[in-house]
């Protein structure tokens, strides 16, 4: 495992920590899109179907369990926790799941590496992950006074896939036959979706002012 991959995973892990911290410390999930959280949970469930059948390393298995567990914990906090669930911006978080899930499912049926149920579901998770942030970005644009932790959470999520791109470049040059078109193109699309957010995030950080996205 190279340094970019490890850094990517750690940043991804940190994004979960920041999100749980924000929700727990403020007892509020204001500004967080439940739709995006549900889509990410679906992404992890679909991608880690081989959790118990395909052992790669202790590291991989542990991280997968942590990602799955944390995703479900966040869903519980946002939907089931008495105090927190009332802070959810239900009226603002209006993105339609089907607009994302349906095209990704169709694309996975059409473009995949092998015609097996596991491979198609896995490919679906790759496509869905690329666009799952969209409800969150739309909600951020509608939210006045984005708090720091929410801004940092989205920044870390974007940074994680960016670091994975460096990991893929590294692996391409160091491992023979390492070609992953589906993952690469999806990962690039995923990172591009954050560019606008990155621009405003860095600008607000440099000018030391509160993050606000133009609507």
């Amino acid at each position: 495992m190279n340094i970019f991959r490890l850094a990517g995973d750690m940043v991804h892990l940190l994004s979960f920590v920041v999100l749980v911290l924000k929700i727990n410390a403020t007892k509020s999930c204001r500004g967080i899109s439940l739709k995006t959280q549900e889509l990410y949970t679906l992404v992890f469930v679909c991608r880690y179907l081989d959790l118990f059948s395909n052992f790669i390393s202790m590291y991989n298995t542990t991280m997968k369990i942590v990602f799955l567990g944390t995703s479900f914990a966040i869903l519980y906090l946002m939907r089931g926790h008495k105090v927190i669930k009332v802070t959810y911006d239900r009226e603002q978080d209006t993105f339609r799941y089907l607009f994302l899930v349906l095209p990704c499912a169709l694309l996975a049926l059409l473009i995949h590496n092998a015609w097996t149920p596991f491979e198609v579901v896995w490919t679906f998770s790759i496509y869905l992950e690329a666009v799952a942030i969209l409800p969150q970005l739309v909600l951020l644009q509608r939210t006045q006074n984005i708090d720091n932790l929410t801004g940092n959470y989205v920044f870390l999520l974007g940074l994680y896939r960016g670091l994975y791109i460096l990991n893929w470049i590294y692996r391409y040059f160091t491992e023979p036959h390492y070609i992953q078109w589906i993952v690469w193109i999806s990962g690039i699309v995923q990172t591009i979706l954050y560019l606008d957010f990155f621009y405003y995030y860095i600008k607000s950080w440099k000018n030391n002012v509160k993050l606000a996205l133009p609507s």
């Binding site: 991959r5 995973d9 991804h12 081989d50 395909n54 790669i56 390393s57 991989n60 991280m63 997968k64 990602f67 590496n113 092998a114 491979e119 896995w122 994975y164 990991n167 036959h177 390492y178 070609i179 992953q180 993952v183």
Partner: peptide, 10 residues
């Protein structure tokens, strides 16, 4: 082969 690669990533 191509299928197995990438499954070692998260």
């Amino acid at each position: 082969d191509e299928e197995d690669y990438g499954k070692d990533e998260l």
